[in-house]
Simulated scan of single mutants.
Amino acid sequence: MGLEGFHVIEVTEQLRHLRVVVESDPAPAGCHACGVIAASHGRREVRLVDVPSFGRPVRLVWRKRTWRCVEPKCRAGGWSEQHDGLARPRALLTVRACWWPIAQIRREHASVAVLARQLGTSWRTVWRSIKPLLEQMAADPTRFDNVEVLGVDEHIWHHVSTKPVDQGGRGPKELTGMVDLSRDQHGRVRARLLASSRDDPGRLTPTGSLSAVRGSAPV
Rank of each mutant, 00 (worst) to 15 (best):
Q82F: 03
T162I: 12
L86C: 02
V219A: 02
P101H: 01
H41A: 15
G168V: 09
I130W: 02
W67V: 02
P141A: 01
V179P: 02
W157M: 09
P89C: 10
D200G: 06
S129M: 07
H186R: 10
V114T: 12
V147M: 01
V11Q: 05
V58E: 01
V179L: 11
P28N: 09
E148W: 02
M178E: 04
E71C: 02
R188Y: 13
V46I: 14
F6S: 00
S182Y: 09
A97C: 05
L86V: 09
T121N: 08
A212P: 03
W100S: 01
V11N: 02
L193Q: 09
G120Y: 11
R107E: 11
S40A: 13
A139F: 06
R68H: 14
V147P: 04
R203Y: 07
R188K: 15
R170F: 15
S161N: 14
A87D: 00
H155S: 15
R19Q: 13
S111N: 07
E45L: 04
G187T: 12
H83Y: 08
S40M: 09
H109M: 12
R63C: 13
S211D: 13
D180Y: 05
E23K: 02
E23Q: 10
A76Q: 09
A103D: 06
H158S: 11
S122Y: 12
G55H: 09
L194Q: 01
A27M: 10
E148I: 07
D199S: 09
R75C: 07
H41N: 12
T94I: 03
C69A: 08
R190A: 04
V58P: 02
T142P: 03
H7D: 04
R170E: 15
L204C: 13
H41C: 07
D184R: 12
V213Q: 04
G171E: 15
R117V: 14
V22I: 08
P26N: 08
A33I: 09
E10Q: 13
S129R: 05
S196V: 10
V22K: 00
A76F: 08
L210D: 01
R90Y: 14
D184A: 04
I37W: 10
H41S: 10
V22S: 04
C98L: 03
